[in-house]
């Protein structure tokens, strides 16, 4: 595994306990951020993920700057959802290191909020909208303990913030697609995290919901939260995101939207011809079956 010269110690970070000044959350937001990459909200180094020997993510190197709205853009099957799942330890990594504010994810669970794809759950499940939002608090509540009044209130406040307070008691199958997505967003808000990972929060929602969601994401950014959003609609990327990651199995380009979101880079990301890497991946797949 190659080491990057500007971050020579990064491979040691997972094993050795981080230095105290790295761990501590700085009260002054200006003191944190991009100038300290080792305390970046999210730092991925040489991350490779494979499903059954077929690589899905290859050598992903990425530092999320603090307090930004970051769009993850790429064609279908580019590994966008997998990237989020790799951060959350939901899929095994073949190699590479992921740190959240300089430490492994398993020690930082409470600082990360997750919005999975809406289709990933059964909306016929017998729970109310408020129940679903309350689930965002389960990590804080801890094992065996029942949901307390304070957590119910936090969940209510989160529902209110996405304009769904009137629907708290509705069973979730009685909500429209946009309302379901708002409930998912409220659940992430109830997590009160510093880093949010959202998997297509705009998929299948109405225009009003899309506007409402983006407004909430912008509020999060104003509070210096970092938000990563898997996004499909290229049209709205420059409007919604100040940073962008162009992903097609590997990171094609990353940086401020104004610099990175160029036709040239998009062609590289979505390009019709197979890249050498993809050809190699196909070869590996064929080898795996042979």
């Amino acid at each position: 595994m190659m080491l990057h010269q500007n971050r020579p110690l990064v491979s040691d970070e997972a094993s050795k306990p981080s230095a105290p000044e790295v761990v501590q959350r700085t009260a002054d937001p200006v003191a944190t951020g991009a100038e300290h990459p080792e305390t970046a909200p999210l730092s991925m180094h040489d991350v490779t993920v494979a499903y059954h020997r077929k690589p899905v993510l290859w050598d992903v190197d990425f530092d999320a700057p603090e307090g930004h709205l970051i769009g993850i853009v790429g064609p279908n099957g580019a590994g966008k959802s997998t990237l989020l799942k790799a951060v959350l330890d939901l899929v095994p990594r073949v190699s590479g290191i992921v740190t959240i504010f300089g430490r492994p994810y398993r020690t930082q669970r409470q600082r990360v909020g997750y919005v999975p794809q809406r289709e990933s759950v059964d909306w016929d499940f017998p729970v109310s909208a408020l129940d679903v939002v309350t689930m965002g608090r389960y990590g804080r509540i801890g094992w065996f303990k029942p949901v307390g009044r304070a957590d119910k209130e936090a969940a209510h406040a989160a529902l209110d913030r996405v304009g769904m307070a009137d629907y708290a008691k509705r069973q979730i199958s009685q909500l429209s697609g946009g309302q379901q997505q708002r409930v998912f967003l409220a659940r992430a808000l109830a997590q009160e995290a510093d880093l949010y990972l959202m998997d297509e929060p705009f998929a299948g929602v109405d225009a009003a919901t899309e506007k409402a969601i983006i407004r909430i994401l912008q509020e999060l950014r104003e509070k210096r939260r970092t938000v990563l959003v898997v996004h499909h609609d290229l049209q709205t990327v420059p409007e919604y995101f100040d940073h962008v990651v162009l992903l097609n199995m590997r990171v094609v380009a990353q940086g401020p939207t104004s610099e990175v979101f160029t036709p040239e880079n998009l062609r590289k990301t979505y390009g019709g011809r197979l890249t050498l890497l993809e050809e190699a991946a196909h070869a590996i797949k064929r080898g795996g079956h042979g």
Binding site: P116, S120, V132, M135, Y138, F144
Partner: peptide
């Protein structure tokens, strides 16, 4: 009764449950 919320969340949304440490 003891694991009510853990059983509930891992039945409804296994990915979120796992990401929360359940």
């Amino acid at each position: 009764a003891l694991l009510y919320k853990e059983l509930k969340i891992s039945a409804f949304d296994p990915a979120l449950a796992t990401s929360l440490g359940i």
